[in-house]
């Protein structure tokens, strides 16, 4: 069942709501597709009414990533009906990558339905953390939230991505200041810190900033469009 290129078939992106999971998931799916691997992005957010991966469907398709969207996402029907193709994919045995964008906090409960198949298939579960979210502002609170997500989903977090951001007002200093926060969460959870996400359009290219030397940086594109 181990995919040919060694990377796990399923990548679950979870975290506190508003941590920036969708942006990370969309960018990760595009990066996976660019390696030549067939990639699906499953939006299984059943708690958030709007601002979700479904909004990025057009961008994903342009990049060759197939979005799997809850049947009634962004409509007025508040029903968390997930697409049947997702079950087929997770229970299948192809070489494709399935990136699963989970709803915030206990939105992860939806994973319970797939947990057994995901475990069988091989997975990584990346928890996205954001120091500027009030309920996860301390490493201890972030860890507590992560444990709740693990309990709800029946899966273990295998790594964290630091996505500490203040939206359009994010500065390189904000990200730099969040490095010890992310490192402490990784230490407490005993999982690797995958890297520090940033949007070059907002902060500029941090890879050219010497203060970030030695840190793993994850440059991202904006996945959601502003209303105004």
């Amino acid at each position: 069942m181990v995919p040919k290129n060694g990377a796990p078939a399923v990548t679950v992106i979870c975290g506190h709501y508003g941590a920036g999971k969708t942006n990370v998931a969309v960018n990760l799916a595009i990066a996976s597709r660019r390696t030549g691997r067939a990639t699906y992005l499953a939006d299984v957010d059943i708690v958030n009414p709007y601002f979700r991966a479904a909004d990025a469907a057009e961008m994903l398709r342009r990049e060759g990533v197939e979005p799997l969207i809850p049947l009634f996402a962004n409509s007025n029907v508040d029903i968390p009906a997930l697409p049947p193709l997702l079950t087929s994919l997770i229970e299948g045995c192809g070489n494709e990558k399935i990136v699963v964008d989970v709803g915030g906090d206990d939105g992860a409960v939806v994973l319970g339905r797939y947990a057994e198949a995901i475990r069988r298939r091989g997975y990584e579960m990346i928890c996205v953390v954001n120091r500027f979210r009030p309920l996860t502002a301390s490493p201890e609170d972030a860890v507590e939230g992560t444990r709740e997500i693990e309990a709800a989903s029946g899966l273990r977090v295998t790594g964290i991505v630091n996505n500490s951001s203040l939206g359009e007002e994010t500065s390189p200093e904000d990200i730099l200041g969040s490095v010890p926060y992310a490192e402490e969460i990784a230490r407490l959870l005993e999982v690797p810190l995958v890297g520090h996400a940033f949007i070059p359009e907002i902060t500029g290219d941090l890879s050219e900033d010497r203060r970030f030397t030695g840190l793993t940086l994850i440059p991202m594109k904006r996945a959601t469009k502003s209303l105004f």
Binding site: G18, Y50, L166, G167
Partner: peptide, 10 residues
């Protein structure tokens, strides 16, 4: 309104 309720800003 819902947009203001759901959107994120500093």
């Amino acid at each position: 309104d819902g947009a203001l309720g759901q959107m994120m800003e500093p």
